[in-house]
Simulated scan of single mutants.
Amino acid sequence: MTADQLGLRGRLVVVSGAAGGGIGTTVTEMVAQAGATVVAVSRSKEKLDQHIGPLVDRGLPIMPVAADAAIDEGIDTALDAARSAARDTGTQLYGLVNVAGGAAPATWMPSTRVRRSDWRELFAANLETMFFMSQAVAGELRTSGCPGSIVSISSISGMNTAPFHIAYGTAKAAVVAATRTMGAELAAAGIRVNAVAPGVTETPASGTYVDDDPERDRRAIAMGRRGTPAEQAGAILFLLSDLSSYITGQTLLVDGGLNLRWTHVGADNTSLFLKDDNFRDAITRWEGQDLT
């Protein structure tokens, strides 16, 4: 397979959540290597300097942009940068990859302990950011009359149960629903909308609560190991590219067969991947909640 088969040369792709050092950074690199100009968006200039700066120094066609995709002003900044980059490079806006999102360890808890503020925070980070960035890019593509491809990150937690992580799992399930609906609405305009649902993947973010246990991985995952950012980015690149030109509204589960076994939930219904017993005890504590 050559870069030309991907059909990304001469096109511009926005990556939202590009500078976390995991999936977003890897997909930024791979899309640029495929010949596209990439607008790499992150709310953290420090992380852009750390993770995207070295890619720019290598000569890859990447424009780092510090903007918060969770707010309208940040989306406007990202789109203005994309327009400017398209003019400067003679490219055409074509794609969007929504990686921004995630959940801090503090968001793991029983469903009876979830507050409205917890729920809203996770939906804002994982659903609203994806939707409103997609809306903005789709609007730009429709105005220009150009085709395009939008790919978002869901999660295995949005494809099945997410014990003690209900808000995150439900938000990621909503990403799947939004992907299907936008795929149907935008198909006639030549804009494809798809998603990738990663399983357990070795990223800086997952390292905050997932420990290193190869034997546990062999028991839980059909392929016997966790995924890498490059493996998730490869699926994203496929859905972004012309190789998937007849696919829209779909969510591709990239989990090494974890869902085929679904044995990573223990007797107490918590994930076997959680790092330590103290963390497990903290998130499963039911007594004494005050939700007022």
Rank of each mutant, 00 (worst) to 15 (best):
D88G: 11
Q50E: 15
S84G: 10
V65K: 03
A69R: 00
A78G: 06
D76K: 06
G35Q: 14
A70V: 13
Q50N: 09
S84Q: 14
V56L: 15
D49M: 07
S84L: 12
P64N: 06
N98D: 04
G53I: 15
G74P: 05
I71R: 07
A40W: 06
S84Y: 10
H51M: 03
S44N: 10
V97F: 08
T89Q: 10
T77Y: 09
K47S: 13
V39T: 03
T37R: 10
R58P: 05
S44F: 05
I71G: 07
R83S: 14
A100W: 00
Q50R: 15
S44C: 09
G59I: 02
L60Q: 01
D68N: 15
V41I: 15
K45E: 15
I75A: 00
N98Q: 03
G90K: 01
D88I: 01
G90Y: 10
V97L: 04
S84T: 11
A78R: 12
V97W: 04
V38W: 12
I52L: 00
L55D: 13
A67Y: 05
Y94E: 03
P64R: 02
G90D: 08
V99M: 07
S84P: 00
L96G: 03
P54R: 13
T89A: 08
E73P: 07
A78D: 02
G90P: 10
G74V: 11
D57L: 09
A40T: 05
V38N: 02
T89C: 02
V99N: 07
E73A: 15
T37M: 14
P61K: 04
I75C: 05
V56F: 12
L48D: 08
G35A: 12
K45A: 13
L93C: 09
G74I: 06
E73Q: 13
S84N: 05
Y94D: 07
A40V: 01
T37L: 11
R58V: 02
D88Y: 02
D88P: 05
G59L: 08
T77A: 15
D57I: 04
T91R: 05
D68L: 11
